[in-house]
């Protein structure tokens, strides 16, 4: 596969490591009330769609950027690639 890196352009997926669902970005607050339940859902309950999937890839043999790749799991078509850091910020993550 070819991943169109937002900074470096098209790169071979051999340079990347796959993690999984980009929903991992939405890590709950560990000190909040009911954290045990929210963390259980966060870690173990994932969608596994046949179709568009937003997932985390790490450019380990490249610039070490974590990317959010939107990929069709049926065709491997990649429709969007974003820096995970930008996505995380957009989703309200900070420190």
């Amino acid at each position: 596969m070819i991943i169109n890196h937002p900074i470096l352009g098209p790169r071979d997926s051999q340079e990347f490591v796959y993690l999984g669902d980009a929903a991992l970005i939405d890590r709950p607050d560990g000190l909040a009330e009911g954290a045990l339940d929210t963390f259980h859902d966060y870690l173990y309950l994932r969608d596994n769609p046949a179709g568009l999937h937003r997932e985390l890839w790490y450019h380990e043999q490249g610039d070490r950027s974590w990317l959010v790749v939107t990929r069709n799991t049926l065709t491997h078509e990649i429709t969007q690639v974003e820096l995970a850091r930008d996505v995380a910020r957009a989703r309200g993550r900070s420190k």
Binding site: Y58, S65, W66, A88, R93, S94
Partner: peptide
């Protein structure tokens, strides 16, 4: 790097 970029980007 995952923690730095995906969890604590700021």
């Amino acid at each position: 790097e995952y923690a730095r970029q995906c969890l604590y980007p700021d």
